[in-house]
Amino acid sequence: MAGKPSLLRSGSAVPLALGGGVAFLFVASLLVGPAGLRVDQSLTALISGQGDAAVLVMREIRLPRAILAVLVGASLGLSGAALQGYLRNPLAEPGLIGVSASAALGAVLALQTGLAASFVLALPLMALAGALGAVLLLVLLAGPRGGAFTLILAGIALSALAGALTSLVLNLSPNPYAASEIVFWMMGSLADRSFTHVWLALPLTLLGWSLLLPLGRGLEALTLGEDAAEALGVRLTRLRLRMVLGVSACVGAGVAVAGAIGFVGLIVPHVLRPLVGARPGRLLGVSALGGAALLLAADLAVRLIVPERDLKLGVLTALLGAPLFLHLIFRTRVRAE
């Protein structure tokens, strides 16, 4: 009885490989950009601070962009894995079920009302509030016993509502340029971000991670259902609260700085699940790493595929993720028949 991953063994090959992948993509992300710096120029500039323009490009443009890709990607992967584990439903994903759209609504309100300009933390906090409201509503409407169907319906309703309210805000916006800027921002991107964005997202992101990462044991026990998990000593009310707050903080912070980037939280746990023996607890950490790797790779791809056009990151992840989502629905349907 050796080899396959199970509760009684904890292989570290998968996390190590993913960690290596993240490190590799992080460096690659620092070396690719329209400035066309050579590798040695880039690294010298980054480390020593020699060479004016190169230092600016590396330290003010590429480094924050790569860091944000890691923060936002890890948050999305981790949130997806946590939501799926808690709801025991592989279709749960912050973007798909309206959490990102609600966070975006909060962010748009902060931008349009001028709150964001007068108080730096208003943007992430409003996005957090939007995400929090959405997750609470979802847990209320489609708790673990609601099933896949209820969850998706609740998600559609929530996305539609948040989208309509966002449109309303833009509709009533007195300044058409500001409105179109916000529309582009909502597609999700990491282009032209600075360290201000990193510092804006970092505290809430770390808070979210610290709430979600220790949920592993509880999520594992939930494999057996709520009753059995509670009898095994899992405090369900506390787990639910941590899950709701953690996902909201992660997604809220991510949306506040990068817009709504969908499907990362769906793709990553789906791809990694077989590698950890389908265990929802072990899936948390590896999904965070996988999310960071995926977003770094996607952000590299938008720079490499069409460097002259500003292809939005969220557009690319949706193009990758939507077909997978259709595939998952198809499989759910086949299983139900």
């Binding site: 396959k4 199970s6 509760l7 057996l224 259902g225 059995a228 000593g233």
Partner: peptide, 26 residues
Amino acid sequence: AAWLPQMREIAWPVSVETVVGLGRTP
């Protein structure tokens, strides 16, 4: 106390050994 609910739920395609191992959670 060990509790075996009537509802037989196994949410994820985990191994038999993993399911049984969940009994060691406490």
